[in-house]
């Protein structure tokens, strides 16, 4: 059985920051959890009914109320401010990286189609290169993915890159990430999208920059041969 609370290895630039935030919350909530449950168990054992005991008449304490109200407020607001920094890095439109490689990913029941600019260097033209259920990206370079859907809502989930965003029909949502390792990583659909939802998986293939260029040009030649 896998009962680990550790996040799987992350392979994106913002992954470590997001994981740190997760571990900070894990520590804080873990401590609060242990303290609260220990106090609870201690109280019910210590103050269990005994013959002749009478409970102490205490209606409350506004001092105690103030302490735990403000302590909770301070902790959660601090977490919110901490979260905001990372959220902005990942989602703020002004923080989207320059010189990113851009591609389109279009979801439909039950597959992912990634489209890359062809020889004209433009996305959305007829010479786009398409790969099904495989998303190819270069390593150490920011990638912008324009997420779209042809039918229902799907969710583009790259667990090891800490990326998840819905693909909504009728809209285009850009998201970005930058892989830090080459290799193959799982791609999954995280939003119920019909009976084949469970098998709407794919692979993210992170190439070295040279390999990526080679792969692209091979695909271009293949596409031209088909015509």
């Amino acid at each position: 059985m896998n009962l680990s609370w550790l996040m799987p290895e992350s392979v994106s630039t913002f992954g470590p920051a997001l994981d740190n935030l997760y571990y900070v919350i894990l520590w804080i909530t873990g401590i609060v959890f242990v303290v609260t449950e220990v106090v609870l168990v201690y109280f019910i054992i210590k103050y269990r009914h005994k013959e002749g005991r009478k409970a102490t008449y205490i209606e409350g304490s506004s001092k105690a109320e103030w302490i735990w109200t403000s302590a909770t407020a301070v902790i959660v607001m601090a977490l919110a401010i901490y979260s905001k920094g990372i959220w902005d890095t990942i989602r703020h439109p002004d923080m989207f990286p320059e010189n990113a490689y851009e591609l389109n990913v279009t979801a439909k029941q039950y597959e992912w189609n990634a489209a890359y600019a062809g020889s004209d260097g433009q996305l959305g033209t007829s010479d786009d290169i398409v790969s099904r259920n495989q998303v190819h990206v270069p390593v150490d370079q920011p990638v912008i993915v324009n997420l779209q859907s042809e039918d229902v809502i799907h969710s583009f989930f790259l667990p090891q890159l800490r990326v998840k965003h819905d693909a909504v029909p009728g809209r285009v949502w850009p998201i970005w990430f930058e892989a830090t390792q080459t290799g193959e990583f799982p791609l999954a659909c995280a939003e119920l999208c019909g009976l084949g939802h469970y098998r709407m998986g794919g692979t993210l293939i992170v190439h070295s920059k040279e390999d990526f260029d080679i792969w692209l040009s091979e695909m271009q030649i293949e596409a031209e041969d088909d015509e």
């Binding site: 996040m7 920051a17 997001l18 935030l21 997760y22 919350i25 894990l26 804080i28 909530t29 959660v76 977490l79 919110a80 979260s83 990372i86 959220w87 990942i90 989602r91 667990p159 800490r162 990326v163 998840k164 965003h165």
Partner: peptide
Amino acid sequence: GIFLASAPVDIY
């Protein structure tokens, strides 16, 4: 719930 309230952690 605090994990999920934190929008970046909620991404994952």
